[in-house]
Write a protein that binds this DNA or RNA. Structure first.
Lengths: 311, 311
DNA sequence: CTATGGACACAACCGTTGGTTGTGGCCGGC
DNA sequence: GCCGGCCACAACCAACGGTTGTGTCCATAG
């Protein structure tokens, strides 16, 4: 099935006859007839009843029409998503389960008319390069890693701190705890596969390890978060860190336990980054939205690396 | 753009390489390469970065991917909408602005997982034939017109009464009234183009006219409700009837006035019709939903034709 | 009843698209 | 430095999709 055929179907349905639809599409009536016939053959149902003065939709055709329109709308958006200039606002988040992901969902709810695309880049270096090249419009990242100050043309503003929680399987020693302190975690195996040295998230966990004497293992291939959750659920000696789910769907069926960490609570600092000269109107809207919805921040009892920009 | 290409793109993105995607799609690697290249050429952007051990998405590719998936989902639903057997529940409503339309929206909100298609048939005769043939699963109609009892195999249940309101332009004599009685409308020109003799809605208005001495004009071609509203808005001497909008969007910008009609309030009686033997599981859900959400009916002060089935 | 015009379907023809096979280049790993 | 995996390019070919020409059906007018 190709969209030209669908477009033809919609045009014919709107016009009420093939001839006019053909004129609109700048093809012959015979071409429209053939396209519709092919579509009907593919679907296995008759879409039009041909009459002496046109063609009108059958019941099947009526049922199909809104779906066809939707198809064209979605195709339109798909093309727009990569159109250079006036494309949807494109924002990088660190992970789909991270807090910025939830923020973007909230932004979308508040501004459903603003076209959005969310991408996930590798690290802040990639993100900054993408921002400077114009490939993306904004990025939620932790700044600023020592030795890597933000370039002059990149602006940033702190957005929120995401508290980390301990994630264990049901058989883990700490599974029953209502909360744990960072000091209690010393000696436990914290497994976070996929940490790549040199990234800003690696720097975050390096600092966390150095300051509280934790042992975080980054060994083994990263098969994705689902595989990670499976392993955590089944391995009594293993735990991992995960951002506190705000409103995200909590993966069910694993018997996993979330345990708040206290004294202090490690928080992952998300800032919004964008290019000084980016004229995208939706970018200003996003910044305003984030500024307006940012809850008053209470840093008491939390920990973040010293290099985090003031907030 | 055709959906085969989109499917190829998604398969390649999922596989991370063209070769494997080609195997999945049962074509050669070269075909996948050509399809992706064509898609990139159409969109004007590069979607993959080719490496020695596969192909990974560019930022544009990442932005495009969810749209591509959505496109395939919508296409799937579009095909399903006309698939014989196990297709979405197909329900006929009398008009898109009518109360049953709102009911179906409420049903969709309550059961977003149930696939729905709403169609608009000509009259109850067509609807009953469509129900008996299996082309539709249910219909909201007014029953039972004199001389046309429902066939044995069609079941029906009263659902709701839709109060009619008077619709006038701002310059109409009654534009400022907070409400009008049916008696007051005698002598005023009520214009309802598109009424076709022999239909059940014509029978309804025939009875309304006969009982209260109104004059309803059905003259002139029916150019659709938008054209109707335009004319009503601009013509001081003309008014029309329209169902009371429950939560529908009220057409703005015309300066139109809605005026409740009282003593009595004419109500249009909607019943749900379906085939005795229809096994569609969603049909039972719809009936249960309607039964549960039907507000307690108060027929006091309302008018409907005598032939309406008891409620 | 017939003539006419409008609208769609069918047939023949043909260019372009999209597939295959064959081959070459590039990169990473052994 | 060779080998293997993966992708791109070229040549070839079938099939799809378009056009022109023609036939059929139906509604309307004479």
């Amino acid at each position: 099935m190709d969209l030209g055929t669908v477009r033809t179907f919609v045009a014919a349905a709107d016009a009420g006859q093939f001839q006019e639809a053909a004129a609109e599409l700048a093809v012959t009536q015979q071409a429209v007839s053939k396209r519709i016939a092919a579509l009907e053959s593919n679907l296995g149902v008759r879409l039009f009843t041909r009459t002496a003065r046109g063609a009108e939709l059958t019941i099947d055709g009526q049922a199909f029409l809104p779906h066809a329109r939707e198809l064209l709308r979605v195709a339109e958006r798909a093309v727009a998503s990569v159109r250079p200039g006036r494309r949807p606002l494109r924002v990088d988040v660190i992970a789909s389960r991270s807090a910025p992901s939830g923020l973007m969902r909230g932004f979308h709810r508040a501004h459903p008319d603003i076209e959005l695309d969310v991408v996930m880049l590798f690290d802040i270096e990639t993100a900054v390069a993408a921002i400077r090249s114009g490939a993306i419009d904004a990025s939620f990242r932790a700044v600023a890693v020592p030795g890597r100050p933000l370039p002059e043309d990149i602006e940033s503003v702190w957005v929120l701190d995401e508290p980390l929680q301990l994630l264990t399987g049901p058989a883990h020693m700490l599974a029953g705890a209502r909360s744990v302190t960072l000091a209690q975690l010393a000696g436990h195996r914290i497994w976070m596969p996929g940490i790549v040295p040199g990234t800003e998230w690696a720097a975050y966990y390096d600092d966390l390890v150095a300051e509280f004497g934790l042992t975080i293992e980054a060994t083994g291939p990263n098969f994705g978060s689902d595989a990670l959750l499976d392993t955590i659920a089944d391995t009594p000696a293993l735990a991992t860190f995960m951002g506190e789910p705000t409103r995200l769907i909590w993966p069910a069926g694993h018997g996993l336990r979330r345990i708040p960490v206290t004294d202090p609570t490690p928080v992952y600092p998300h800032s919004l980054l964008w290019h000084r000269d980016n004229p995208h109107p939706a970018l200003a809207t996003l910044r305003a939205h984030l500024a307006a919805t940012a809850a008053g921040h209470d840093a008491a009892g939390t920990w973040a690396p010293g290099w985090v920009i003031p907030r």
